[in-house]
Simulated scan of single mutants.
Amino acid sequence: MNIREIIVVEGKDDTVAIKRAVQADTIETNGSALSKETLRVIKRAHETRGVIVFTDPDYPGRRIRALIEQAIPDVKHAFLPKKEAIAKNGSGVGIEHATNEAIQQALRHVYTPEERPANRFTNQHLLNAKLLGHPDAAARRERLGDILQIGYTNGKQLLKRLDAFRVTEEEWQHALQALEQEETR
């Protein structure tokens, strides 16, 4: 699998994992302290070849993703479910722990946010789906993010991401059905 865009990752171990799974160039942010120089390099890469942000499914990864998206609103995103990023010994979470297949799967489902989301989804959608105001809401949002491959978010960010990544009503319904089926097992 050959990736044209440059993939933004957090560190050297992530680069090794990406290059093991696909043919691609990477830019490393060197952790969650995203420097102005690194952001400048990412912007230049975005202008010339395009960029896919592929950070760890944890708080620092989400923070880096948000900073890059704030600077480059139309940047592409790939998401790895947290369960695919956990070290075998349980000692950490990161892209570097993922299998080649999991990395390839995430890179097959790259999203580009829409500049002006349609705001098709509302808080009522989330309430009806027990994704807000329910004791299991956070866990359900995490699984929904995995199913839709849009990553974990809080409720407010989920609404933005559903619209920004143009999730259709059909995809929404399919994801909710998959979530319900998982819970009845």
Rank of each mutant, 00 (worst) to 15 (best):
N2G: 12
I7C: 05
E10W: 09
D14N: 08
K19H: 14
K19G: 09
R20Y: 14
A21H: 07
V22S: 11
V22Y: 08
T26M: 05
I27H: 02
T29D: 07
N30Q: 13
A33C: 14
L34C: 09
E37D: 13
R40N: 14
A45L: 03
H46W: 11
V51C: 05
I52V: 13
T55I: 04
D58T: 01
R63Q: 15
R63H: 12
I68M: 08
E69V: 04
K76R: 13
K76N: 06
H77M: 03
A78S: 08
F79N: 01
L80T: 00
L80A: 03
P81L: 00
K88C: 12
G90A: 12
G94P: 02
G94H: 04
I95R: 07
A98C: 10
E101Y: 00
V110I: 11
E114F: 11
P117A: 10
T122G: 07
L126Y: 03
L126G: 00
A129S: 05
L132S: 12
L132F: 11
A138N: 06
E142I: 02
E142R: 12
E142L: 08
R143Y: 01
R143Q: 07
Q149N: 12
I150V: 09
I150T: 02
K160F: 09
L162A: 00
A164S: 14
E171Q: 15
H174E: 08
L176T: 02
L176W: 01
E182F: 04
E183Q: 13
E183M: 10
T184M: 10
R185W: 09
